[in-house]
């Protein structure tokens, strides 16, 4: 497997999800979303069903990447937090381990100070989980795919052809 690919398994997902659930409940926010830096969704929690998560993921990742570019231009290693304030809803975007990104959406009833503080803690918990699983994958090097899940990669050329045949 390409070292830079991100692989998400059930056990890891459950740990990440429970951290998001806890954060969402404690803050009473509309949405908390964990994505990778390329804009792929990993997990989310919250009642904001009206938001297109795929689009949000892509735009948040691009936004963070652009902000990183801005930071380098002025000689900063990074601006690790982005905050956009709206009339009714606010968005808080922050880095996790330089590889992931956390997005929070909340209304004016939620205090920004509280959000900032909680995001620090949540980020630390998430980083722990990512570290733990990175170590696990390393020790299992050649067993990256757990035996109970079928590999999606033993597909044939015909399988690929069929993709477009629908």
């Amino acid at each position: 497997m390409n070292a830079s690919n991100i692989v998400l398994y059930e056990a890891e997902y459950q740990r990440l999800k429970s951290i998001l659930v806890k954060t969402q409940r404690e803050l009473g926010i509309d949405l908390i979303l964990l994505i990778d830096r390329d804009g792929h969704q990993i997990a989310s929690e919250g009642p904001a069903q009206d938001i297109d998560l795929t689009a949000l993921s892509s735009l948040a990742a691009a936004n963070l990447a652009a902000t990183d570019g801005l930071a380098r231009l002025v000689g900063e290693p990074e601006f690790s937090i982005l905050y956009h304030q709206g009339k009714h809803r606010n968005i808080h975007i922050s880095d996790v381990s330089r590889r992931y990104c956390l997005v929070l959406v909340f209304d004016e009833k939620v205090s920004l100070g509280l959000v900032r503080l909680r995001v620090k803690h949540t980020t630390a918990y998430l980083e722990e989980v990512f570290k733990l699983f990175a170590r696990k994958t390393e020790t299992k090097k050649n067993a990256a795919v757990p035996s109970n899940s079928p590999s999606p990669f033993d597909f044939t050329d015909e399988d690929i052809d069929k993709l477009f045949g629908r």
Partner: peptide, 12 residues
């Protein structure tokens, strides 16, 4: 980089 999600059963 590819994101392989065994939970949602997606390859991104």
């Amino acid at each position: 980089m590819t994101f392989i999600n065994y939970v949602a059963r997606e390859i991104n």
